[in-house]
Each structure stands twice: as C-alpha cells, then as structure tokens.
C-alpha cells in the first residue's frame, strides 16, 4: 500500500534539501494535521528525528549580548527540524499490542 504514511517518509528522504511540512502535506494530499501525525509516527519509530531549532546551546548563550531578548530562547516562533536518522542510530521496532 503506497499511502500517506509511506509517501510522507519518501518525500522527506527524497527531498535532499529543505522542505516544509505544508508542502509535504499538499503533495501527499492530506491535511497538515495528518502530516504532523504521520511525522510523529516515524519519529516514534526512530526513522526521523525531531529537534527544535533555535534553542540556546547546552552551556547557555555564552557572552551573547542579545541572549535575554532572544526569541529562540523561549520557544517563540521556533522552527522544528525533522531529519532522517541514519540506520545505525535508529531504535529497534517496539513491540505491538
């Protein structure tokens, strides 16, 4: 079955570049909400990883004079990156039930 689940993953893998979720959803003929749910599915199964971009690094913002007002710091208007995980990094498939 070549449905939305497979198509969304295939689109991301094949993108070889940057796309945004709205584009992927449009191409797969599903809503953005559905695309988000499908991305969640693949993230849970270790095929994709999701990172919020814009957060300050673990050691803090160093000497950045703009740190206090940095919108990246408080999660406002953040971008989330979804990337294909390399095979070695994937978690084993969980048991079903």
């Amino acid at each position: 079955m070549n449905g939305a689940l497979r198509q969304v993953l295939a689109e991301i893998v094949a993108a070889r570049g940057t796309a945004h979720l709205g584009e992927i959803a449009r191409r797969a003929g599903i809503t953005r909400d559905e695309a988000e749910a499908i991305v969640d599915y693949w993230v849970e199964r270790g095929r994709l990883s999701r990172d919020r971009l814009g957060g300050c690094p673990p050691r803090g913002c160093g000497g950045c004079a703009l740190a206090d007002g940095c919108s990246a710091r408080d999660g406002q208007a953040q971008v989330t990156a979804i990337t294909v995980r390399p095979r070695a990094a994937r978690e084993p498939e969980p048991g079903g039930g």
Partner: peptide, 22 residues
Amino acid sequence: GRAFLPIIVGFGCNVPALSATR
C-alpha cells in the same frame, strides 16, 4: 543542512554559535 541555525545564532554572537554547532 541544519548549519543555518548556528549561523543565525552567530549573527548575534559567535561564542554561543560555536557551542550550537553541536
């Protein structure tokens, strides 16, 4: 691909941007 984030941080200050390369 995702190198743009540390670069954007770097326009504020290079020091945290270097940490962000992680």
